[in-house]
C-alpha cells in the first residue's frame, strides 16, 4: 500500500494505492492523523487505485472521518472502485459518507 498527498486549494487529496487490510491500515491511520494534526481537515480520499479493502481499511477511513468532522472538516471519497464500494455498502455507511465520481468534483465540494 502506498499513500500520496497533495494540497488542492483548501482541500488535501490523499491517494491510497494498493490494498488496505489489518497489516496496512495502521499506516493509513497514522498518515491521516498526521494530516489532521497539521490542520488539514478537508481531506479527500482518492480511491481510484485502491484495489481492495477489508473491514480494517473501512475502520481506518471511518475513524478519520469522525475525527475530521469533529475539527469542522470531512473525509470525502472519490473514484471508489465497484468492489471496494460494495464493502462500504455492506457496512451501511454509504448514507453517512460522501462519495464523488472523481477528485476534481470532490475538491469542488469544499469550495463555497
Amino acid at each position: 500500500m502506498d499513500i500520496k498527498q497533495e494540497d488542492r486549494g483548501t482541500a488535501t487529496v490523499v491517494s491510497i494505492v494498493g490494498s488496505l487490510d489489518a497489516m496496512t491500515s495502521p499506516q493509513l491511520t497514522e498518515f491521516l492523523n498526521g494530516q489532521l494534526a497539521e490542520g488539514r481537515a478537508n481531506l479527500i480520499g482518492d480511491l481510484a487505485a485502491l484495489e481492495y479493502t477489508s473491514s480494517a481499511g473501512l475502520r481506518a477511513l471511518l475513524n478519520a472521518t469522525k475525527e475530521a468532522r469533529q475539527r469542522g472538516g470531512d473525509v470525502r471519497l472519490a473514484a471508489v472502485q465497484p468492489n471496494v464500494k460494495k464493502v462500504f455498502e455492506l457496512s451501511g455507511f454509504t448514507s453517512i459518507l460522501k462519495f464523488y465520481s472523481d477528485v476534481p468534483t470532490a475538491v469542488a465540494s469544499y469550495k463555497g
Binding site: R59, L62, N63, R69, L90, S91, F93, I96
Partner: peptide, 25 residues
C-alpha cells in the same frame, strides 16, 4: 446483528464488521 442504518457516524461503532462481512458474502 446488521449495523443500525439510522444511526449517525458519532453513534456508530466503526469496528466489529469482520464477522458481519463473512456472513454477508
Amino acid at each position: 446483528d446488521a449495523p443500525d442504518a439510522r444511526a449517525g457516524l458519532e453513534d456508530r461503532d466503526t469496528g466489529g464488521f469482520g464477522l458481519f462481512f463473512i456472513y454477508k458474502t
